[in-house]
Design a protein around this nucleic acid. Structure first.
Lengths: 107, 107
DNA sequence: CAGGATCCCACAGGATACTG
DNA sequence: CAGTATCCTGTGGGATCCTG
């Protein structure tokens, strides 16, 4: 039967957003504010970031902490569940490094 | 700068098709004919399988070998590049197994 | 048996404007 | 600063029909 199918689907559902893997990687270095994440991923659209964060939160990979101050102060951090993805994400980065042959052997 | 972003993107571009990870996993067990893959993933749509296979081929993760006989005999196998994904896919399956809590602790 | 040619639709990602 | 609320568009996955 198809354990493989189910197992991979669980993972893909969770990390296959266009920016999710990167966001998670950023958070491995520690809690970050919304603006910090945004600054660390300049290409991402403001709204898109919000959506990806919300999805990650709904999947319980990250947790959000809002402080009722003005201006707003919102922190994102990995949950234990999210941290469990570390080996996987590391593998991804490792593979990417090895095979990112966009400009092979540049001068 | 954003090595993480690039590296994860390379990976995601390649394995984030809805069925790609499973297909690759099947092929780790050896070369398979089109029909065998299809049978091993009954839920997948015929056309969709063809498309996913073509994409995997274009990404050089698998290679296709057609024998000009009738009825057609077409074999798919992993390239060396494709096989290099093994650790990553294993991590995916491992993570999925651990966290596939759809029906936790069944009777 | 494997796959080409179409058509279709949901939806993820993004753009813009507004708010406390 | 962080977040809603809309609206829009490209496209990935699928359904249907046809072919050597």
């Amino acid at each position: 039967m198809d354990k493989d199918l189910e197992n991979t689907k669980v993972v893909l559902d969770v990390v296959c957003g266009k920016w999710k893997a990167v966001i998670l990687l950023k958070l491995f270095d520690g809690t970050l504010r919304f603006g910090e994440i945004k600054k660390s991923i300049p290409l991402i659209n403001h709204q898109t970031l919000i959506k990806q964060l919300r999805e990650l939160e709904e999947d319980h990979l990250i947790s959000k902490k809002s402080y009722p101050v003005v201006p707003p102060w919102v922190e994102y951090s990995l949950t234990k569940y999210g941290r469990s993805l570390k080996p996987l994400l590391n593998e991804m980065v490792a593979w990417g490094e090895k095979h990112n042959n966009k400009d092979k052997t540049p001068s």
